[in-house]
Simulated assay, not measured.
Amino acid sequence: MSSHHTRLNLSAAAASVSVALFLVVMKLWALVQTQSLSVAASLADSGMDLVVSALGLIGIAYAARPPDHDHAFGHSSAEDLTALGQALFLVATAIALAGVSLRRLLAPTPAPLTSEGTGIAVMLVSILLTGALILWQRRVARLTGSRVVAADSLHYLSDLLPSLGAILALWLSARFGFTDVDTVVGLVASAVLFFGAVRIGNGAWNALMDRRADPGLIAEIEGIIADHPGVIGFHDLRTRTAGSRIFVDFHIELDGTLSLNQAHAIGAGLKHRIIQSFPQTDILIHKDPRDPDA
């Protein structure tokens, strides 16, 4: 991964930690003021955001280390391990939040809410900060292909629903005295969080198990190979993912009468074209001689 991409990933992770820390402090104050379960749900989510984002920052920093004697292919799998840890944290949070919501829903007396206006103001600020962070994370993930940044972005996107739900619950409580909506929002938020965690964990698990790259990306790489000057054919194309890296190796068939320098030039040009289109790829090309008239 280029140093520019590393800096982008680190900037997104650092921004995530900073926003999460600010939101935890702000929502904790709002919870004390309102006693709202939906605010508590959003606070729990932000608390986990802080832990998960901090782990993400550590994972990205470690994954950016260059290859060494013991890790010839680099350290990018650390991103997948981090993303898997993120998913486990999120599942635990979702289960705990669902339990609290169910207990309050089944309680004989609805829990009162207070200072709804304060809570609404806090949640609006939360939505604005989260939205700005998501836009930056999406841009970084699109440029670098980082799985950790993409997972963090998905998680923060799922945070918007609890925040919007909290605003609705607080408004209904202040306007009409409805408090059960607050509990329902907590349940919905836990479900969104749970299924989002499953998606993140599944992607990380697939990468750790060396699953192939996205079929669309493979098809584009095959098109580049087939159209490259001097390449008669290709076979045995294999891919695997590790963090934000995609490892690709394949055989190309070249005119057997070419000199070694000519064959090398064709392979080097092809490798450059693929990396230019997909900077996150690591390319290994085997060159096989072939009779062009065969």
Rank of each mutant, 00 (worst) to 15 (best):
V188E: 11
V188P: 03
V188A: 14
A189E: 10
A189M: 03
A189S: 13
S190M: 10
S190V: 11
A191S: 05
A191H: 03
A191M: 06
A191I: 09
A191E: 03
V192A: 12
V192H: 03
V192I: 12
V192R: 03
V192L: 13
L193Q: 08
F194W: 03
F194H: 02
F194D: 00
F194R: 02
F194I: 03
F195G: 06
F195V: 09
F195M: 09
F195H: 07
V198G: 00
V198P: 02
V198R: 05
R199L: 08
R199W: 06
R199Q: 15
I200K: 01
I200D: 00
I200S: 01
G201Q: 02
G201V: 02
G201A: 11
N202K: 08
N202Q: 10
G203A: 15
G203L: 01
G203W: 05
G203I: 11
A204F: 00
W205S: 12
W205G: 09
W205V: 14
N206G: 15
A207V: 03
A207C: 11
A207F: 00
L208G: 08
M209Q: 14
M209L: 10
M209P: 07
M209D: 07
D210F: 06
R211H: 12
R211K: 08
R211M: 12
R212H: 10
R212F: 12
A213F: 03
A213V: 04
D214A: 12
P215M: 00
P215N: 01
P215D: 01
G216I: 13
L217H: 13
L217T: 10
I218D: 13
I218G: 08
A219M: 14
E220T: 15
E220I: 15
E220N: 13
E220Y: 02
I221K: 04
E222D: 06
E222T: 11
E222I: 01
E222R: 15
G223V: 07
G223H: 05
G223P: 04
G223T: 01
I224P: 04
I224G: 04
I225S: 05
I225R: 00
A226P: 07
A226V: 15
D227G: 11
D227Q: 12
D227K: 13
D227F: 07
D227L: 15
H228W: 07
H228Y: 14
P229I: 03
G230H: 03
V231A: 00
I232Y: 03
I232D: 13
G233F: 08
F234P: 04
F234H: 10
H235F: 01
D236T: 12
D236F: 01
L237F: 06
L237C: 04
L237Y: 04
L237S: 03
L237Q: 00
